[in-house]
Design a protein around this nucleic acid. Structure first.
Lengths: 322, 322
DNA sequence: CTGAAAGCGCTTACAG
DNA sequence: CTGAAAGCGCTTACAG
């Protein structure tokens, strides 16, 4: 039998309420009493029964993290830090990978409504109908839901501008953009906007392929891009997966990198993953994860939160630019 | 306010016990009564409060899945199916990636002892001390703990034999083995045994590199192997990551595959991952996941379980053998 | 500062 | 087959 708060109270010669107060670190306990209780807890090796705690507080201490796929360095790394940060606050996180299944978002909303979980971080881009979301503790990365959903993002516009200009300064004359357009409003769209703005500034003709696609399609889209714009000498790629395939497609086509073709990618480079020395815009994944978790926990507790958090990326030079 | 069992009871004009019985599908309820209750549940849109359920049943309905890394097709796929299967039984799964941290196993054991989670699936290979594990609901994949820990594995020995003989039948004369030795007793060791047995049978000299290594070291071990045994014309690789690096190292060294060098790998090929047409021994990951979850749930409920479950692999021909 | 008591929403013997 | 009641282990007003 586990030792309960009752056992501790009896051993310490106090009421259960007092024990509870000590456990929860409330100030209104006398020093002597507190000592006695702590001692009793130590002796009896007490640890709080979370099931009772949850019922009483009407909180599960569980959040969900919904990602499109887990087989992906960005999402995997994000998941790792989300888990770590949530743990600090006593929350467990269940990982859900939607794997193209649109209804996973609805499923999670239902779980929140049924109080199986307390809230969720959505990193997916499916649901169009935003009605349901409004009252649930949900936060997001990159995606701009309605006004009620706080999210964390990176400085997509500025970082993309900088990256593209970097290539141009190093001689690129025909700069292309390869991306995967999100289904719903997302800060990721800022990358396209930045690209088009730079093209206009330099009076360059856009060479862009940025369509809605599912995870998995990237494999064929990258070669398509190279076929459609065989003359590009610089490409900005939006996202890890595409960047890997583009690199391969370019090599396949006989391009020398970076001499014939420079590449910069958002999330292009991960240690121990694929081409690891690609010049890239590196998102502060750890920080994004920690912030998004803290936002969510605030939301769960009904506290006020910042609606849009923008974190700074880092431009990391690799071997794919001159 | 959520509707509770009380509301349903009142609406249906029965006692709360009866409602509970209907919810839990107990037979001892009259048809008429059952109908009334179901109707009330529908009307009031009732769903069980899991927090109360957990307290009452002394079960969290949460299990943990501990993997070495999540950035890996085998583990990612496993995680997906573990989650799916657990969900069918009402369990959520929290994903923990140990990321080289040896103490994650202990951490999980502690969580089980503190009743924060009900049990765990260990796919890691760290903990030597098996004392703690014995009384916890823990199951494993491949790893052979003490007698109390049930596990699921694949037919490592037979599959490896078959794979190696396949290469030999197609002309390989100097067959090597590249693997990563687990830290603790594991069925994975059967692969080495199979290899050595076949070598003996064919009176071939072993060319083996099978050492303890951490995730991440594979990158340098594969080239090491090719350097040490430059004359191999067939290699059996134990594990996905190594297989990718070996392939690259071989190409780097100017080998033509499969003409100069045949390769077969355990877990060599995953759709959309790395070299996807490698000849390989394919583990039934989905089935392994589902079985291991069912084992764990039985263990949680104190039921008898099979200690060792062996599932059949599939030999899949790709482009890396003749 | 502290104790006794109510109650969170369920399940489960216990009677009938 | 069914209801009333006890109890799971906590937290939290309420008195003092």
């Amino acid at each position: 039998m586990e030792t309960t708060i009752k056992d501790v109270a009896k051993y310490a010669g106090v009421g259960v309420g007092t024990v509870s107060r000590v456990i929860n670190n409330e100030k209104a306990v006398g020093d002597k009493t507190r000592e006695k209780v702590l001692e009793a807890m130590r002796v009896l090796n007490y640890s709080r029964n979370n099931m009772a705690f949850r019922l009483r507080k009407n909180e599960n201490l569980i959040i969900a993290l919904l990602v499109p796929v887990i087989n992906h360095p960005f999402f995997a790394k994000l998941a790792y830090y989300v888990e770590d940060e949530a743990g600090k606050f006593g929350y467990s996180v269940i990982l859900v990978s939607s794997q193209q299944k649109v209804d996973k978002e609805t499923e999670i909303i239902t779980k929140i409504k049924h109080r199986e979980i307390d809230g969720a971080v959505f990193v997916t881009h499916y649901m169009h109908d935003e009605e349901d979301l409004q009252n649930c503790p949900i936060v997001s990365i990159d995606r701009t839901f309605g006004q009620d959903i706080p999210y964390v993002t990176s400085d997509n516009y500025d970082a993309t501008r900088e990256a593209i200009r970097y290539m141009i300064e190093r001689g690129a004359k025909k700069v292309g953009f390869l991306g995967s357009k999100p289904l719903v409003a997302s800060e990721v769209m800022e990358r396209e906007r930045a690209y088009l703005d730079v093209m206009k500034e330099y009076a360059m003709q856009p060479r862009m392929l940025n369509e809605v696609m599912q995870h998995g399609e990237e494999m064929s889209i990258a070669p398509d891009f190279m076929e459609r714009y065989p003359d590009v000498d610089g490409v900005f790629v939006s996202g890890y997966t595409l960047s890997q395939f583009l690199y391969e497609a370019a090599i396949e086509q006989g391009k020398r990198i970076p001499d014939d073709l420079q590449i910069v990618s958002y999330d292009g480079s991960f240690k121990q993953w694929g081409i690891s020395n690609m010049t890239s815009v590196e998102q502060p994944i750890e920080e994004m994860a920690r912030q998004v978790v803290r936002l969510l926990i605030k939301k769960i507790h009904g506290e006020q939160t910042c609606q849009r958090t923008v974190l700074k990326t880092k431009f990391v030079l690799g071997a794919t630019t001159k």
